[in-house]
Design a protein around this nucleic acid. Sequence first.
RNA 1: GGCCCCGUCGUCCAGAGGCCUAGGACGCUGGGUUUUCAACCCAGAAACGCCGGUUCGAAUCCGGUCGGGGCUGCCA
Length: 436
Amino acid sequence: MKLRIAPSPTGYLHIGNARTALFNWLYARANNGKFLVRIDDTDTARSSEEYMLDIVENFKWLGIDWDEGIEVGGPHGEYKQSLRFDRYREVAESLLSSNLAYEDEGAIRFKVPSENQIKFEDITRGAMKFELDDVEDFIILRSDKSPTYHLASTVDDIDYEITTIARGEDILSSTPKHILIMQALNADIPSFCHLPLLFGPDGKKLSKRHGDTSVNLFREQGLLPDALFNYMCLLGWAPGDDLEIFSKEIAISKFNLDDVLPNPAIFDTTKLLWMNGQYIRNISYDKFNKLAAEKITIEIKRDLFDKERERIDKILPCVQERLETLNDITPQIYFLLDEPFEVNKEDWDSVNSEDGQEYLFAIRNKIKDLENFSLENIEKLMRDELKTQDIKPKVGFQITRVSITGTKISPPLFESIYSLGKDGTLARLAETIQKL
RNA sequence: GGCCCCGUCGUCCAGAGGCCUAGGACGCUGGGUUUUCAACCCAGAAACGCCGGUUCGAAUCCGGUCGGGGCUGCCA
């Protein structure tokens, strides 16, 4: 069994293409088959090297690997259609000379036999039947002698011995043309599977007009590849037993193209974000720490100082619990960086009170005298002072939070203070008190 | 218009004649926990497009209808 994905490098890797690649990959892996990646760049005007690199790079990022094709090589050259135009011309010429095609204004058209029909079995859709009367003679070689998609794709599928073609449903109506070419070339007809399309929230084929739907974007937004992978699996398929969060291994062990739903799915990022949060919470501390450092560095556009790293290390476990994407990290740890510190005016006003101010003075003096600046001692000190003054936690803690972190929304208070360190905390408190 | 595909909660999925007074998840609403935001826990609202037929019995099979979508390029 051999499957393939054949992206056209006319744009960054699109989420729809990624999903198609994923299902092909899963099916190949589930059946001990081969998976091949080739580049369908017959549209030379719109294709670019940059897009090709992006597509390949993002397949890898998602954890999709391949046994044959672009970059990894194989018995059929470089797996780029733009390098095989001679081969396609040769096939077009042979079709021409055997009278199965004809010239039309410099182009070559395939002659579709009339009064006949093409039947095939689609893996997810069952029996398909097309009347050839409805299929026009179609161009296989353009007047500039470049091949069209129908020709190039079909010739490659034959030459590379693809046994199962699983692609988007948008090509379902073109399949009779491809079968026609295969028959004309006396090739074996592979199995076909037309996967349901991914729709945007408006119920239309997912495309540019729905905004950026590239895999890149999700990557930049701080999605984990495993989370995206898992989520895409769920678009048109499920492993059963109401299992929703699962590993690639599980997916491979359960996957079957037969089970893929024939109806389109709307790509909605809400659940994806939730799932990403689940994945973030499940990765190891070390891995999270590494990812977080990378993200922060990118966002503040400089390396972290050792002191900053120490502080961030302390708070990260708390941060890991309250994230949706990796991009949510920096705002939460920003108060620990050696960057200009600012208190949000609105937040300050909403937590400011006379009791609060008194509390601030008191804990500042107590912290100054605190010898062992441990998490436990900080908590004890702050709770004791609450009792001394007989005020509610909210009154004392919230004003402290804003003084220390600059905002009402932050990681847990004691951990934040502990991470900031004694000197840092005293400095922040002093700064606030001075402004009173 | 023609050809083709599709139709279960707002969304994703379960359901392959009786286990369905339709299940799970996200989201939503309410509650709990709580020093903020999250996370977490509990509860709730929420769907078989419609009409016929087959059958003792249909979300499941058939027909029609309506609705949505795709293709209809010398794009893929």
